[in-house]
Amino acid sequence: MNPSLAVIFLTLFSGAGFGLMAVVAIVNDFAIDGGLSPLRTAILVALSLLLVTMGMISSTAHLANPKNAWRAFTRWRTSWLAREGVFAVLFYPVAIAYLGWVFFRNTTRGDGALVLANTAAVIGLITIFCQGMIYACLRTIRQWHTPLVPANFYAMGLALGMTMLATSQVLTRGPDLVLISTACALLVAAAVMKAIYYFWIGAPSGTTLQTATGFTRGKVRLLDQGHTFGTFLTHEFSNCIPAARARNFRIAVYVLGFLAPIAILIAGAHGLLRLGVLFAPLLAFIGIGIERYLFFVQAKHVINLYHGRMPGPLPQMHPALRAGAGAADTMINKTRLVPSYEKR
C-alpha cells in the first residue's frame, strides 16, 4: 500500500491522544500513586486534545476532495471510517468539559469529574477500536484482516499515553516507580503484541493469481499488464520494500519504540536523567511511527496479484513456517510506477 503520511500521523497521534486520556482517567479513578494534581491533569488532557487534533487535521490531507469531508459522519451504520469520525468528534465536548471542570474547580475529585473523565476515556478507546477496524475489516488485505490490528492499536496507544504520563511525573516530581513500572509493562505488552502480529502476517493466504483468474489447475503467469505506465492501482497498491530493509525497520521499531523508552524510563526511575527523560516519549513516537509506516507499506492488496506482483503458485508464508523455500517477500522491488516492458 501507499504509505500516506496523513494516515500514518492520524493513527499515530490520535491513538496516542486517546491512550493518554484513558490512562489519565484510570490513574485518577484509582488514585494510583495519589492520583494526578488538577494542574497536571489539565495539562495532560490538553495534550491529549492537541494530539487528537493533530491526527484529525492530518487525516484531511489524505482526502482528494475535502470539501465533502463533513459527509463522512453520515454512514455510521455500515462504515468503520464514519464511526471513527463520529466518536472522534464526540470525544471533544466531553474531554473539553473535563478539562474545564478540572481547571476551574481545581480538583479532580467529585462525581462530575469522575463521569466526564471516564466518558471521555471510553469514547477515546472506542475511537481506537474503530480506527483499527477500518483496516481489520478489509478482506482484500491479508496483513490487515486480523483482530490483531485493533489489539495492536490499543496496546500502542495506551503504551504511548502511559509513557507520556510517566515522563511528566518524572520531570516535575522526581522518580515515580508506580507509573514508570506501569509504562514499562504497557510498552512490553505492546512489543509482544506486535511480535505476534509480525509472526502471523506471514501466514499463508488463500488468494492467489489462480483463484483471481479462475485458472486453478495450472500455472498462471502475467504476460502484459495492459498499460505502458502506471495507473491509480499501481500507484496506490504496489508500494513495497525489500525484505532486508523491512527487517531493519522492524529492528528500529523494537529498539526505538520499545527498548529505548523502557531503558530511559528505568534510568529516570533511578534519578539518572532529568530533562533527558523527555527522550522516552520522543523515541517511542519515532519507533511507533516507523511501525505505522511498515503497517502500511507491507500491506499487500490482492489487486497486486493481477499485476503479477505477488507470488502466485506459492502461498505467502513466513520463512519460519516454510522450510527452506527462500525469502517470503518475492514481490518485485521496483519503484511504484513500473513500465510493463521492464517486467518481461
Partner: peptide, 10 residues
C-alpha cells in the same frame, strides 16, 4: 476497464 494478458499452463 483494464485488460491484462496471462499465460496459462506450461
Amino acid at each position: 476497464n483494464r485488460i491484462r494478458h496471462y499465460e496459462i499452463g506450461e
